[in-house]
Amino acid sequence: MDLSAINPILLLASLMVAATPILLAAIGELVVERAGVLNLGVEGMMITGAVSGFIVAVATGNPWIGFLGAAAGGAALSLVFGVLTQYLLSNQVATGLALTLFGLGLSALMGQGYLGIRAPAFPDVHVPLLADIPVIGPIVFQHDPMVYGGLLIVAGVYGFLHHSRAGLILRAVGENHDAAHALGYHVRRTRMLAIAFGGACAGLGGAYLSLVRVPQWTEGMTAGAGWIALAIVVFAGWKPWRLVLGAYLFGGVTVLQLNLQAAGAAVPVEYLSMSPYLATILVLVIMASGRSPGSLGRTFHAAR
């Protein structure tokens, strides 16, 4: 094996790109879970976002509109989950699983005519001045806009949850929905909005895969990224900034194993490709300490 073939600067630079889809999906799910809803359908919303974003981008030739389409697609699918769990009071775990199974089928069906097509180019931005700094420039400041968009969304979510009235209501709904209801807050409406936001973010994450990272459409292309996003929310202890850490850690493992594959490691490729999933399990074991929102996963039914 030739370890010198691995360029540490390129490795760190691609880490941010590898982490972005997971980060986007995870920040959406974090908001959903802070509102007290466990949506296990992230994988399904992500892949639906991936295909709808791809279709829109190919049709319009504009990746930005593609991302919008992906957010709309993910949000639309998440509303199915929302109506079932919030208005028809179905079990959240089962409904989330159904959403994943349904999304995988739906995306495969939608993407039929789009196999083997390349997505329109989504150029990197060079942040003026900063991009020219040696070492740090290429690692941090020469990526496509969505990498920074993801970080902006995290910052926005942090500000929303901790420094706004609406964020406080959302957290109250998630901690104790009966008390929030008694105080006159709209539990269902809050949760529906959170679920739609989560769906839109998962859609963006999926579209990042199909429009930037791969950039092609293939069936089942998310390959568990949505589940890893769910794991990272647990790892982060439902705190936005730790989510970034988790996503980058995961991105690091992914990029490292891809680089080791390319460098011709003595270990067969199949074993290397297990590593992101094993790393996720390890992380879950070590970081199982966070306190989850009080009403997470419980069905809310107002008797009055």
Binding site: L84, G105, A108, L109
Partner: peptide, 26 residues
């Protein structure tokens, strides 16, 4: 018919069941 349509149908079945199940408990 595309193969994906069947897995879509199976997912739909679970959705419908979860929706209708509301009538069992409420």
């Amino acid at each position: 018919l595309p193969a994906a349509a069947i897995s879509l149908l199976q997912g739909m079945l679970l959705f419908c069941l979860l929706a209708v199940d509301m009538l069992t408990h409420y």
